[in-house]
């Protein structure tokens, strides 16, 4: 069970990092001027009203004490209250997390669905017009801001063609699939381009290797060579790429969630920072940090499945 041991060791390594994240984020967010009571009550409320809220939320206590309370609650599974919504964070988290996860996975699948065929077309027609067309096309998402693509997609598919709704998350699995198509398409655009480029050059590299020449020499038809020998080998670096990009995609979801009015983690995080909703920001930062660690770990664990040369030591 070397794989299991490796996984356990990696998980053990992430714990101190996670602890460090809690310390950093707790004190960093307190360094930002402005506090939740002021943010919520605004300009007009009396000083007495602001002080009363600060007291009620324990914000008048010394910072180390507040940190102690936070850690004690965290260890007992209590993520604290969203001060803005006056609701336990744990009650709000599942729905929000589902939206973002659905969106991110959906966009990754769309990226693969589009990028793999495009790259194959480009690689097999190297420097001829299909290749030029694909390479030209993918410059567009690479060079365009995500929110702008989002608005364009909205105008085309939601407003002019009316194929998809302009906002919201929908009900049920099919409803989510339908409502999240445009956001996922928008979010996938950048990664689709990156993936197409990388996969195209990987395919071209593999095509020139000796074992592909050998496969052709054996008399295998082009299709078999491409699908069984070339693509499989070319997908290897892509796994790492997906792992790395997944973290970025979670970041990109912030913009997409705002444009499409999706109740996900990204938009929640931004709003909570502006509202100084401390517990939400702390929870989400920790969750994002853990998420990135888990993705990295999974990437490492998946690698040997594609490349028998890699073994866990």
């Amino acid at each position: 069970m070397p794989l299991l041991r490796y996984a356990l060791r990696r998980i053990g390594q992430t714990l101190p990092v996670a602890l460090l994240v809690t310390v950093l984020i707790f004190f960093l967010i307190k360094l930002i001027p402005g506090d939740p009571a002021t943010a919520i009550l605004g300009e007009r409320a009396s000083d007495a009203a602001v002080r009363a809220l600060q007291q009620q939320w324990g914000l008048d206590r010394p910072l180390p004490v507040q940190y102690g309370v936070y850690m004690r609650n965290l260890l007992t599974g209590d993520l604290g209250q969203s001060l803005r919504y006056r609701t336990p964070v744990i009650d709000l988290l599942p729905r929000r997390a589902t939206v973002t996860l659905f969106l991110v996975v959906y966009s990754m699948l769309l990226s693969l669905l589009v990028a793999v065929p495009l790259a194959m077309v480009a690689a097999t027609h190297r420097d001829r017009w299909p290749d030029q067309l694909v390479r030209g096309l993918i410059v567009v998402p690479l060079a365009s801001p995500v929110f702008w693509i989002g608005i364009l997609v909205l105008i085309l598919f939601a407003l002019t063609l009316r194929w998809f709704p302009a906002s919201g998350y929908g009900e049920g699995f099919l409803g989510h699939l339908w409502h999240l198509f445009l956001p996922a398409l928008t979010l996938s655009s950048f990664f689709t381009a990156v993936l197409t480029r990388n996969l195209r050059s990987a395919l071209i590299d593999v095509q020139t290797t000796a074992y592909v020449d050998f496969a052709r020499a054996k008399g295998l038809d082009r299709r078999t060579v491409l699908l069984h020998h070339v693509l499989r080998a070319a997908l290897l670096p892509i796994v790492t790429l997906i792992g790395v990009r997944l973290s970025y995609t979670i970041g990109g979801s912030v913009v997409v969630e705002t444009v499409f009015a999706l109740p996900g983690l990204g938009s929640w995080m931004i709003e909570s920072i502006f509202a100084r909703d401390y517990m939400v920001v702390q929870t989400l930062t920790l969750a994002f940090a853990l998420g990135v660690m888990v993705i990295n770990l999974l990437t490492d664990l998946i690698y040997p499945l594609f490349d028998p040369r890699v073994r866990m030591g």
């Binding site: 989002g150 909205l154 105008i155 407003l159 709704p165 009015a261």
Partner: peptide, 19 residues
């Protein structure tokens, strides 16, 4: 009452009949 923070998106939601 639906929360649609972005001004452009809110207008598109109205124009497309979402709201």
């Amino acid at each position: 009452i639906r929360y649609i923070p972005d001004d452009n998106s809110r207008i598109i939601a109205l124009q497309s009949g979402d709201v």
